[in-house]
Amino acid sequence: MANASGDLALVFGGVFSVLVFASALSAYLRYRYSPDGRNVVLENLDARIMSWWAIVAMLGFAFIWGKTGVIVLFGLCSFAALREFVTLTNTKRADHWALAASFFVVLPIQYLLVWHEWYGLYSIFIPVYAFLFIPIISVLREDTRQYLVRIAETQWGLMICVFCASHVPALLSLDIPGYQGRNVLLIAFLVIVVQSSDVFQYVWGKLLGKHKLAPSLSPSKTVEGAVGGLLSASLLGASLFWITPFSPLQAALLSLLITLMGMFGGLVLSAIKRDRGVKDWGHLIAGHGGFIDRLDSVVFSAPVFFHVVRYSWT
């Protein structure tokens, strides 16, 4: 088996070149069409690319640090995402302890279990135990107004922002014959395919987009963008088969699966934003919005990718 850090360096080299190209292109486009900084689309594009640099740098740092680094990074992402999610819920003062427990007990325990590779517990801890105990903590305050709505929102936030997101670092624990020591590349594969699908959808949508995919959910998504994005990302995934335990065909099919999940994840979380009447989940990632705006596709695809690989390759 090839050396994992060598392959990782190649992958990062590739991503680095793409970012250099994107930054250069964006600088040229702004010089040409937005010299006074007034073109909103180009300014947003530039902010997005700058944020990508930061995201890639943080992922690179986490990968070099190793398992602990990846777990800390995704734990922090979960924290920031849950913070955005809870901000938009109907939770009341009576939920104060339930929310404090979600942030300061459930979230750290989930990532600790992932760190210990205790599959039997981390895959049911939030769906079963948080599900039972968080409502108990809330009910002790005896405030029944919108009770079901409040506990359901809290549970949903934990499932999306913590449980699903924690399946990205959980990929490190999969024991795939002949692939030992290379699992970090599975994370790189998942993140690159899913995120590039978002980028490809954006690019194809801007270039060819005519027919709106789901105008009342996400005004910028088009059918042309979606098809072009899914196919381009699947091709990219297939071309990355050499960093995975998959054949090129398997890599393409898995890529299609996770990009589809990712696209629907984006739509689901858009629907929640519409319901709550906001444009973005937050403002921390310049050009993109909040953490959930960037992670929506990853959280929806990570558990599915994890289980398919776990049942078929280990």
């Binding site: 955005e84 809870v86 901000t87 003062r93 104060h96 302890w97 404090a100």
Partner: peptide, 17 residues
């Protein structure tokens, strides 16, 4: 939103934007 982070009488703040 800060009133939801730490309402009067609570000891532990909860993270909210």
């Amino acid at each position: 939103n800060l009133n939801r982070v730490m309402p009067k009488g609570e000891v532990v703040p909860i993270p909210l934007i």
